[in-house]
């Protein structure tokens, strides 16, 4: 008897046309076709989606949580990237 577990897949669903696919969870399946079929049953029983992506979890790469500061902090002091940084006369109305 083999003790092999079906691989884990991450599931992404597009809720409706015009929206991006969003991560909804994961599931086990023997291959990508079964992963899509299972995702349909597990994550879209109430018309939650019009399109499904599945990616085998081992192919996802992520940054280390400990790198969070060095990766995301530098944006904090760059307020000039935001429109409100610029002082303009009120009569300009919408710009």
């Amino acid at each position: 008897m083999s003790n092999k577990e079906w691989p884990l897949w991450e599931v992404f669903i597009r809720a409706k046309q015009g929206l991006n696919h969003k991560h909804v969870g994961s599931l086990h399946a023997a291959d990508h076709q079964m992963a899509i079929e299972n995702a349909r049953d597990v994550y879209t029983r109430r018309m939650e989606g019009v399109s499904i992506w599945v990616v085998e979890s081992k192919h996802l790469h992520a940054n280390e949580p400990s790198d969070q500061d060095s990766l995301f902090d530098p944006a904090n002091d760059k307020v000039y990237r935001h429109p409100t940084f610029y002082v303009l006369p009120e009569e300009l109305n919408h710009m």
Partner: peptide
Amino acid sequence: GTWVREAAIAFAEKRA
């Protein structure tokens, strides 16, 4: 269900 789980893996491997 053991044979089903095993058969699905074997089929996926063969197809890959």
